[in-house]
Structure formats: C-alpha cells, structure tokens
Design a binder for these strands. Sequence first.
DNA 1: TCCGCTTTTGACCAACTGGTAAATTGTTAG
DNA 2: CTAACAATTTACCAGTTGGTCAAAAGCGGA
Lengths: 232, 232
Amino acid sequence: MSPSSPPSSKTPADAPRTAAPRRRQRLSTEERERQIIEGAIQFFSEHGLAGQMRELATTIGVSHPLVFHYFPSKKALIERVYAEVYLGRWKPEWEHRVKDRSEPFEERVTRVYIDYARTILTKEWVRILIHSALADGYINDNYLTLVGERLLRPIIGETRIELGLDDDREPTEAENELIWGLHGGIFYIGVRHWIYGHKFPENLPQVVTDRVRAFVLAAREIFPREAGKPAG
Amino acid sequence: MSPSSPPSSKTPADAPRTAAPRRRQRLSTEERERQIIEGAIQFFSEHGLAGQMRELATTIGVSHPLVFHYFPSKKALIERVYAEVYLGRWKPEWEHRVKDRSEPFEERVTRVYIDYARTILTKEWVRILIHSALADGYINDNYLTLVGERLLRPIIGETRIELGLDDDREPTEAENELIWGLHGGIFYIGVRHWIYGHKFPENLPQVVTDRVRAFVLAAREIFPREAGKPAG
DNA sequence: TCCGCTTTTGACCAACTGGTAAATTGTTAG
DNA sequence: CTAACAATTTACCAGTTGGTCAAAAGCGGA
C-alpha cells in the first residue's frame, strides 16, 4: 500500500504512516466480544469464510491478535457466527402456528412465511448460508434438517388434512418438491437480491402471499395424485 | 494421512514416496489445453474459485507451472471456465420455442424448461455459478441479464397474450416475482442437490411440469391484477 | 542416429495468512 | 499516587500460494 516510505517521520502532527495511529481503547470483555462477533458477521457475509483475520480485525478497528485473544481460532469464531445468526433467529412458534387450526390453512401458512421471510431475508443470513454451504456444508446438516422437520413436514401434514387426505404416510417426491419449491423460492428472493444484486421486492408480504397461493393451488392437483398408492 | 512411515525404501519396486514418479507425457497443445479446462471446471466446482493452482494441477496430473504455460494467470483460466460452462451451454432455441404459437402455451413453457433444467442442473453449472456470484458477481451481470431478456421477458409477454392482456407494458413487480419464482425454483433444485446434498428428483420432467403448472395457475390470478393500471 | 523445437518440470521468490509470545498501556483498587 | 491486573499491540514464525525461469526431456524430421 504505502509506496515504500520508511518509518522516519517525527512530528506528531504527521499524516499516519499505514493507518490511523490507532488510539488504544480498552473495552470490557463483553463489549469487545460483542463487537468482534457483530463485525465478523458483517465481514464474513461480505468476504466469505475465507476472508482474512487481519482484514476483519482492521474493519473492527483492532489488531488481529486481539481477535485471537477472544476466540481461540478462526474456526471457533465462525462457529460462533453460525450459532448467532442461524440458531439464534429460529422461532419455535412457526411450527406451532402452522398447526394452529383455529385459523384457516392458507392464512396460517402465509403468515408464518411472511414472518419467516422477514427473519431470514437479510444480507448476513443469506450470504453466510451460501458461503458455508459451498465451503463445508456445516450449516446445512443442522439448519436444513431443522427446516425440514419443524416447518416443511408439518406443512405437508396440514396440507393433506386440508385436502381431506390420509396424513400418516411419508411425503411423496412430488409433495416434497412442491413444498421445497415454495421454501426455496422464498430463500431465493434473498439470493437474487444479496448475491445477484437484483432489486428487493417492494411489497414482500404480497410476494410471499402470492407464492403460498401458488403452492396451495398446485397442491390441490398434486397432493391427491398418489394419495391412494402405498407408501415407499 | 500415512501414519508416520519414514521414507526408508530403496528398491525400485517400492511404493512411490510422495506421488507417482510422474511419467512425463507430451500432448499436443490442443489436447493439453482441453484437459486443463475440463479439469479446472471439475476442480473449481468442487473446491471453489479459491482452490489452489497446485492442487488443480495435481488432479490433472501435471505440474503447476504447466498450467501457467497455457493460461497466463489464474484469473484467465477462471474466465475461460465461465465462457465454456455458461455461454457455451446457452441455447438460443429456447427463446424461439417460447414464442412458437403453433404449440399450446403451457406446453411450450414446460418443454423449454424441461430442456433448460436438463442443461443447467449439473454439478459444475450450479456450483460454479454460486461460487462466482459470491466471489465477484462476474457471471451474474452477464448470465442473468441474458436469462431475463431472452427467456423470462418473452415468457411474461406470452403469458399476457395467453390471458388476453395488453402485452406492451413493463412487467409489474408481481409478474416479475412470479416468473423469477419459477426460474429460481428450478435452479434451486440444483442448489438443494449439489450444494445442500439433498437427493435429486427421480422424475425431473414431472417436477418441472408441476412447477410450470403452479406458475400458470397463479398467473391467472396475478397477471390480470394490475393489467389496467398505468405502467411504472 | 542425432538435431532442434516445444512441452514439461524442479527450484525458487515474494507476498500472504493463521497463530504465538512477549512487551505495552489503560484502568482500577488501595 | 502507585501497584497490579487485564486488555491490547508489536514483532515474529512457519506454512501456503500465485507466479517465474532456466534446465530437462519427449518427439519429429533429416
């Protein structure tokens, strides 16, 4: 960066050599740790999990060994980021609301997905998930299992009940594809915006509502198709 | 890997110490270049664009300076991979078939998307696109513009005609979201398989057919909604 | 068989990168 | 005001990585 200027300056008023002379600021352990985590979430979402620790430290405004003082290794920091972003934002109420038959079926699913969309459609959430998926699949096995069991499977069950079908059998391929098509399509809104750089929908609730509507309309044709056949 | 076996062998028949003693094999420029490109496509799809040149060379079975003999830099090699995989596989006939009104509308779209799905749902295609999108967005600006103009925009036009609507106005947000939902949902089949490790659909044509059906059903509700309002 | 051209490689370089250790400095209790 | 503790940084290390260069070795033609 600096075009080979030897560290020969003397006057305090001089321009900083490499970066701002870094006024050393002491924070409490909790504050600094919080600051590092938040900085890491932003940084890794932009630069990927392969981003450098030195660069991360610079964006936070500290030296890079300090990060190692708070987290024993890069991997430990990344795992903490996972826990904060994915496990920390999951709402168990989604599953309950899907199953709450005091409300009409389509409205239940719509309202849950509007809230789900609001929760996950953030830059960090979308980009870190994709980065992780490509890197080692660490999140998938945890997070997507959670999604499948706690959200999609219950929706398949409720859909069958809504359509007056037997709801005990394993989901068929067509049923699975349909619900994953809805789920993935909503996630893909985030991919389009934060990865492809497309414009974010102005009216997200309307878009989600339309998606759920498309799901319900298709389910009426597709779910009954194999309802009579034996499972497996 | 090898549990600490000291390199103490002497006889020529012994197992090679580090790797096979690499029998030097001369190929024509064309053959070797082809081999490097194909190897790079596979390698980068698995290890990401940050994968090391040495490791790539090893999987091909050559030394890493040889790769630099054929491509001046890593970046040049990656750009060649882009061109091979994305530009090389696009079929202009897709746009023509969408507009060919001798066939019923839904069948046209279905058949084009079945072929499109077969073309892009490969490991290299899906993984390299995502890697690239995260890294620098190099492909998006090129490839997704192509998709939008040559495939999605024509489908919106044909859908409006099919529904008896004015087809001159700019696509509304709801229309755009719906067609991108279809398109993204199909791409997301690949993401689920090659990035998340889910099972690939046994009956892909049926899955695509169902998706197009869901699109058409929803379009009948959504497309007429703003058809009367002024554009913009 | 041997010459000469082109492919291929071993050795090397400089910048980068995760991580360590000891010196430094801000803060607070007494 | 000072000692002592903890937060923070400077200096450093070893392994990695894209890229270079001159030497080595296949291969076709004479």
